[in-house]
Each structure stands twice: as C-alpha cells, then as structure tokens.
Design a protein around this nucleic acid. Structure first.
Lengths: 368, 368
DNA sequence: CGTGACCATGAATCGAAGT
DNA sequence: GACTTCGATTCATGGTCAC
C-alpha cells in the first residue's frame, strides 16, 4: 500500500502512511507543492472551567486532553499561524485546504488563513442532527461546527466536483449547510476498555462529502491532525492517496488498524441509496416569528373555544397557558390535542386552520 | 414616542430615535453602560471582482455600495476594532452583543471581539430556506450567514430567556442553527422606483428570535448599522426601546416611515414563559411550620430511600442529617440533588412529591 | 424473535443567591 | 470577595436486557 514518490529528486512523499511526531515538524520534512488537499481538525482550544453534570447527575466526559490546552489566544494564534504556513508551502498551486472548528477557535483560524493569503471559497456548517443538549439551560444548544474551505490563493483553479455533490443532494445544488449525525454507534472506535478511542472522532460521512467534492481519484490528501484516521480511511475508500500526521502513539495505533481494514470502494458500492426524508417539524413559534400570526391575535376552534397568541409562540386561554396542543387539550378536557388542526385564524372573514401556514413553511423549506 | 433619559445628569440617551452620521462618532456621543443589547449588521467587506450574471445573462444586483468597500483586511480590522471598542463602552455590565456576518468578514469580527474581551456565548447559524443559488456552479450554494452572540465579558450575567425560546421551538431547546427564509415578499422594503430599498435587509423573524431570547420588555437595544430599521421595528413590536445609527439619509427616511407604521404588541402577548428559577423561594421549613408536614413524618424517594422530618425543617436519614437537598444527594451518592422533586410523602395511600406543597404555598402568595 | 423499558453518552468556554 | 447553600437542568441515538 505504501508508496514513495520522488518529486524533482528532492524530499520523498510518504504516501499512505502515518507520520509520528509534532505536526509542524513533520510537515517541514515534506516537499513543497506536493499535496492536493489538506483536511485539518486542529485542537479547538476549549476553555472549560469546572465539571458539568447532566440533570440526572451523571458526569459529562468533556474534552480536557493535554493537547487541547493553550495558555492564551496569543499562544493559540502562534500555533495556528505556524501550521498554516507549512500547509501553504505543501499545497500544489491548485490545492485547497479544509479546516474544521467551533466558535472557540474558528474565528482565529479563519482570520489567520486570510492573513496567509488563502482565499476562502465557502464556510460550511455541519449541522448535527443529534448534538449534545445544553444541560444548564444557559445557552443555545451547540448544534453545529464550522468548516472553512479555501484555495491556496485568490484565482487558483481549485477542484470542485459540482455535479457529484449535486447528485449526492438529490439533484439539487449542494448547499453550505450539511446535516449529518455525529459519530457514534458502530463507527465510533473504542479502546481496549470499551471507552471512546478518541474524544473527537469525526463522522466518515463528513469526509466523504469533502473528498468527493474537492478531490479527484489519485489525489494526495494530507491530514496534519490525523487522530484515529477518519481522513485516511475515507480517502482509501475513495481511491485517494493520503498522508497522516499524529503525535499520540495510541491514536496512531488505532488508525493503522482501522485503515488496514478498509476496502476501496468499487463503482457500484459508490452509488448511494437515499431515504426519503420525513416531513420536517415546524414549531408553531415560527409562525409568530415570521409574522404569519401576530402576537395578541385570537385563534378559535371549531368547538367555539378561543385563545390568544403570545410572542413566544405559546397560547393563553381563559385559565390556561401553554403550547397550541396543551391549551387545546385543556379546553376540550382531552388527554391530547393536535393544535395544528384544532386552531384556526381569521383572514378576510374566512376561518382557516393554522396548519395551512405550516404547509406554506414546509413548501418553502422544500424549495430551498 | 421619543424619550430622553438622563443618566447621572450626563449625556442623555436618545431612545427610539435614529441618529444620523458615522456610527463610531455617534456612539461616542452616548453615555457609558447605558445599553442592554447591541445588534450589529456591519458591512461584510464583500470582495466582488467585476459583475456577476445569472445563467440567463441577467445581472445580479450585488452589494457594491461604497460603504462596503475597504482597501484591505487591515483597514477592515481597524474599523471593526473601533466600533467594537465603543460598543463595549456603551454596554451595561450584563449587556450583550450580537453581530451578523458572512465568511468575508465574520472571522475578522469574531477574532476582534475576543481580543476586546467579549465572551462568546454561541455562534448561531442563520440557515436560509431560500438562498440565492450559485449560478456558476463553482462553489457550494452560500445558504447561511453567521451570527455571534457574546456577553460583555466572561462571567457576566447576560439575559437569556431559555423558556421563551424553548416555547418558540415547541418545547425543545433552541439550537444554534436557525432555519428562516430571507427577507422578501411584502416585508422587503422598496424605494420609489420599486427597487429594493436596502441591499441586505434582514428578516424580522431573525430579530424577533434575537430580542425575545436575549432581552426583556423595556430593555434598550442599540443598532449601530441601522439600515432600514429592522431592529427598531421588531424592538417596537416587542416593547423594547431602541436607538439606531445610520449614515445614509435615504435609509433613515425609509426606516422612520417603517417604524412609525409598526404597532406594539399588547401586554399579554408580550408575556413570555418564565424560568422556574424566577419564582419566589420557599424554604422547606415553611411546610413544617404550616403543618403541611409533621415533624417525625417519614419522606421516601422513588429509589426506596427514606428520611424523617425534624421540627427545624431538616431531615435525618440513616447516617446523615441536613437539608432536603443535602440528605438526598448523600443517599444517592450524587454531587447534588433537588430535594423538592426527590422526596415524597404519603397521604391517603398515595405518594406525592413534596413539590406539590411548595406549589400550594406559591399559589397562595400569588393570590394575595 | 419482536417489542419496549431502561440506560449510556456526545468538541461544553453550561448558576444564583445568601452569608 | 470567598464560601455555603439552594435547587434547576437534556435530545437523539444506540445498546442491553427483560418479557
């Protein structure tokens, strides 16, 4: 599997291997302009204070690894600029870079790569379908991560397989927001104790989309923060060459074993089966936010009950407050109630079920 | 409509007015620590080379206004740091800032606000349900914008109406990705020629969610890049005071007219589901004092533990004495425990959580 | 073997009030 | 300002085990 490629008789390119050691030093040992794509998942520089418990008092196993510890933004910025400088040197003129991060680090990384002359092509949002909730109710659920896709410089002829991504998206242009589940279940690698082998293993689906969209078969993909080798595994499946850099021996061992077990896809295996999506849930509050219903407006039921809309998307009836479903159920003395068909609003003298408004929103979502 | 508020006899706060002029100079004329929330939609620093055409050769009316032109990242950064410095000065200690941007500028803005000591609470993705497609098929459809929500500094007690946002989302925690349509149709303001009055008018639904989630009725909201006044319009509807700053007379004129036509929602519509934490505290001892529980009575937990009530409102378990919370936590070996939901008493053969008694007392307090 | 109850867990900058 | 106490707070998914 391992190939060594000589470029102009200079430094060799250790294809399909994991290089041990610090990512910057390892990159320095690689030749100029030798890599088609870099996918980087650098430390996020989380700054966690104490412990966090779930409402059931179980402890959250947070990312507190030594490799994610930086003294200050200045220290993190210095580290970022150092590896980005090497990344730029290693890229072929028409190469490109992907970086993934969260709000803790992504603004630092984005500014730094602009300062280095990289040219941002898109920022891409990974919308997690099953994120960890916010347990204390103090912020919004942190339900996404951000990727930046950038060419080596302005005007470069980067690779973009427009039609392939369009096909992956059921014939519609691929958007800058990707809904994918986090990595768990059988894909999540475990150590000998049955614990997660790496705290932040990325889903293969994410890399699949990145590599299908921005590389061709035979391209060289470098991942300087290789971890358990998701980039290498997906690159191998897709017939791309890869190089990984990883400092931690334990991660390297897991990645070696993992990639050895991966088979390159044949053509038929690359065809993707796509399930029809369920109808998206539309919160009633969205009708209020979007001005389709006004706070203070009165809704009526076919049974003659009424209630008024509040700004947060709840209803107030005579002696009850709550969701459209709760208030309907209460007014009818019923155990449950479908508020969407129960409640009606008036327009131009006509009484219309609020479900009509939900259908409008769904139509827009499907169109978009 | 216009109110003038004097703070310590110093500079006055021109509530519910649009200030003309440069945003930094106008901010400098406002007093320290006087504003609860800042919503900022600064220039995006778009870098379009030449014109963009659709496949049918019609010209895309891109943002090429003079106010969006910066010579370099350095110039944009200097501008960003200047207005952020004023923003920080104007915010009350527990105030917060929202900024919206795209990949052209948001990394610069995010880095700058971290450098200024703002504390990022979330980055929020506005996922557009109907974005403009990518006509050339050279990149992903740019289908989202990014907002950053930050408190004035680490540890500040920012406003977050968790329950209200949860209600807006039909009982499920609000996530960091918000699906909303772009502003068009009747909401999109037109000038006298029927052209769009402003190139980047934000949807009211976006501001509705921001203001419901991070301000209270009567708060002061500042928008230093007021444009056509979406922030002011939604603030007025929601019973918040607002201040706008806008340099372009044409935008100011549109905004004035628009906001004059807005009606404030009435009081009940503006009431929002509140957090339990906001309810008055009831000491457990009061249940004993009032005879709702007798000293010596046994309380039980769903897990089969038990403890006896003492006359001073503490509990005694097998090997532990203390508050309802302390004894519950100890018996479960948990870091903490909400004794109100943990402990139950028996009446008429039924097992009832003691929280029911607390609710009785609170109902009496509310009734008079 | 199917179903459902129950449990575990994921890149997290995750209190507020009183003494 | 440090310290103690009160007591609020979770969604989706996958795996295990009882029935």
């Amino acid at each position: 599997m391992t190939k060594m490629t000589d470029l102009k008789g200079a430094k060799a390119l250790p294809l399909n291997t994991i290089l041990a050691g610090d990512c910057i030093e390892a990159m320095q040992a690689l030749p100029d302009a030798s890599v088609d794509l870099i996918f980087a998942d650098p430390p996020y520089n989380l700054q966690l204070k104490g412990e966090l418990h779930r409402p059931d008092n179980s402890r959250v196993d947070a990312v507190d690894d030594h490799w994610d510890q930086f003294q200050s933004f200045a220290a993190y910025d210095a580290f970022t600029r150092a590896w980005l400088a090497e990344a730029k040197r290693l890229l072929k003129p028409n190469g490109a870079l992907w970086v993934i991060g969260s709000y803790h680090n992504i603004f630092r990384v984005g500014s730094a790569l602009q300062d280095h002359g990289f040219w941002i092509l898109n920022d891409v949002v990974w919308r997690k379908s099953n994120p960890m909730p916010n347990f204390r109710g103090k912020r919004l659920t942190n339900a996404h991560e951000t990727m930046i896709w950038a060419s080596k410089e302005e005007g470069a002829k980067y690779t973009f397989n427009y039609e392939a991504l369009k096909s992956l998206n059921e014939g519609i242009q691929m958007r800058s927001d990707w809904v994918l589940p986090i990595c768990n279940g059988g894909e999540r690698l475990k150590d000998e104790h049955g614990d997660k082998a790496h705290p932040t293993q990325k889903p293969e689906a994410l890399l699949h989309r990145v590599l299908v969209g921005s590389t061709n078969v035979g391209d060289v993909v470098l991942d300087p923060f290789f971890g358990t080798g998701t980039t290498g595994a997906v690159a191998k499946m897709l017939g791309r060459d890869w190089i990984g850099i990883e400092r931690e021996p334990a991660y390297r061992a897991v990645a070696e074993r993992r990639i050895a077990g991966v088979r390159k896809f044949d053509k038929t295996a690359l065809e993707v089966t796509r399930a029809k999506r369920a109808e998206p849930r539309v919160p009633f509050g969205q009708l209020v936010e979007r001005g389709m219903l006004r706070p203070g407006e009165t809704l009526v039921s076919a049974t003659g009950k009424s209630a008024r809309v509040r700004a947060d998307g709840t209803l107030v009836g005579l002696d009850v407050k709550g969701s459209i479903h709760q208030v309907g159920a209460h007014l009818e003395g019923a155990p449950s109630c479908n508020g969407w068909t129960y409640w009606h609003f008036k327009r131009d003298g006509k009484t219309v079920p609020i479900d009509v408004l939900r259908q409008q929103i769904r139509a827009e979502m499907a169109g978009g």
